[in-house]
Write a protein that binds this DNA or RNA. Structure first.
Lengths: 324, 324
DNA sequence: CGGATAAATACTCACTTCGAGTATATATCT
DNA sequence: AGATATATACTCGAAGTGAGTATTTATCCG
């Protein structure tokens, strides 16, 4: 029982999400000569009373952002998944110290960039997650063939069977938009994202290797995958979209935001019915002046619903057919 | 940016849950002269590759348990919520080190006790959470009056209003069985659980103070509250109950297990319909021999549903009226 | 000005799910 | 044999959901 607690340090990272138009974006810190990173920093047990407070402080310093809604996602401590392509100086983290990282999701509607940070559409990192136009072609053209090879390369039939099942759940019949993390982890294990090779100690992925999406530093893409998964789930049972909307908005704007986050197209009429009947919004009597069609009424979020009990979200009734 | 990462250590705790008959239980370690604790230990960055692996190792040593289903719950790092009534020796944690604890939920059907551990019904710690017989009398007799005082004692009207709202959401009209953590936190802040006074540095709660439920060491009751909340939520959309059931069971046994966990009574006929139509179980053709009425068929979990895609759970259609 | 076009908004309809209950079957106990 | 207890089957109405059609109100373009 004499386990001397060796050097551990706690990293706090935040996936700060906003929606601009139809693009869900995440705030990234671009360090010179290395990949994108989420805003992060070490937890300082002397100055921070809680983990979340530590996070807010760090983020405030790095991005001049005041976080609004935040939510803890997950704590990762895997050995070997916290390396960088080049040695990246992480303030307060000595080399050799084991880093355990606590990921957070934050939602904001403020769209400003501090120096050194930038908003980037999250589908850069997960291009296979955007099904708004269509099932992304890369799934059939690149991902499934590569995963089938992954299944074939299994050391034995048992492993192959389990791999086949995972492939089927992640990319097979019936798309579950919430399984973002599961899909990323599968692609990671199959060696289809750059982080896999980097964590394995190679400077560069093998020639001709599939490298899906834009990589990130450390395990930040994993954290982002967790964030997207959580947000897509939460949309349905809590009114969180409104954290991302301007004070007033048209119902189509609201729908576009939900679609952007969920990566799906929704049935317009049913979406309106839902949002109305659940009392999530109320009309302002004002109207927008669109370029083309009939002006849409501007709505606002009914804050009271937060007080009413179960506090529903927007159920996503996806559209299976073409617009009608 | 020269934040020297000071001493942090990571504690891993597990709420290991089983159901015996109609009692949901949690495995606790009883230390002499102090309160119950969840099995826990420090994360050792040298020997543990992942957090979960560290947990399994610790739990194995302390309880001789092989964890099956496990799930990470939350990471708490609040200053001052990691004290004990008496100074409790925590292996590997030097006094003065800041402890960040990562809580886990584990489900098991094995009912054996290692020396120094014991199964204890979780409603000992949360007596207000068991609504199976009735709305617990203590809510109206003790909790609400005390919380109303908490509202009255607010420093100003704004705080009072927010407190009133929380009280209403937690204990007001319409019981949401998932808000276990929210309720515990409210009771904590209102000073109605012993941990509040202990964390405040008092050896003993003031004379005549309300002390609801059985206290636990450190923040373990908070972790347990998180575990119950998560499990109650997950029941509804993932087939997790079956992790707690024997290989075969009657539908009533299954229902009793769900009721025990959810703290609610369910409508029997609808429960059967649901579980059947969702294909969660299949009959074995064998029957049990009850003391009283007609023998019930023994069912088994259809493991295939884990492979079928969305993998549903048991929706809880509560019974609002008396049995019929 | 007047039809094409685009979007907002309203309404319909069949189908499923869900809560609540009645009805019937098969045991044991006395 | 009847009381009692439990299992299991079936019914019915209310609400929710998916998919569409219909109508209204704007602009654009000739």
């Amino acid at each position: 029982m004499s386990t001397k607690a060796s050097a551990v340090s706690i990293g706090l990272s935040a996936a700060i999400v906003a929606v601009e138009g139809e693009m869900p974006s995440v705030l990234v810190v671009s360090h010179e000569g290395t990949h994108d990173a989420l805003p992060f920093g070490p937890f300082d047990p002397v100055h921070h009373r809680t983990l979340e407070q530590g996070l807010r402080k760090w983020v405030g310093e790095q991005t001049r952002f005041d976080l609004g809604y935040t939510e803890q996602l997950y704590t990762f401590g895997d050995l070997g998944r916290h390396r960088s392509a080049r040695t990246m100086k992480q303030p307060g983290h000595d080399a050799g110290t084991r880093v355990v990282s606590v990921g957070y999701l934050a939602l904001t509607r403020r769209i400003g960039e501090a120096p050194g940070t930038q908003w980037r559409g999250w589908y850069h990192y997960f291009p296979w997650e955007d099904w708004r136009d269509n099932r992304p072609a890369m799934i059939d053209e690149v991902i499934l063939p590569a995963l089938q090879k992954f299944v074939r390369d299994a050391p034995n039939g048992d492993v192959a069977e389990r791999r086949r099942e995972r492939v089927n759940i992640c990319f097979g019949e019936g798309w579950d938009e919430e399984r973002v993390l599961e899909r990323y982890e599968l692609l990671y294990e199959a060696g289809l994202v750059e982080e896999y090779h980097r964590d394995g100690g190679q400077r560069q992925a093998p020639r001709g290797a599939v490298r899906l999406g834009t990589p990130m530093v450390f395990d930040h893409r994993r954290i982002l995958a967790t964030a997207i998964a959580r947000l897509r789930g939460k949309l349905k049972y809590r009114p969180v979209v409104f954290e991302l909307m301007a004070p007033t908005f048209t119902l189509l704007e609201l729908q576009r935001a939900v679609e952007a986050l969920a990566g799906l197209r929704l049935h317009k009429q049913n979406f309106r019915r839902l949002v109305n009947e659940q009392g999530l919004v109320e009309g302002t009597g004002k109207f927008c002046t669109p370029a083309r069609g009939r002006p849409a009424e501007l709505f606002r979020f009914r804050r009271e619903v937060l007080r009413e009990r179960p506090a529903p979200g927007v159920r996503l009734s996806a559209r299976r057919t073409r617009p009608g």
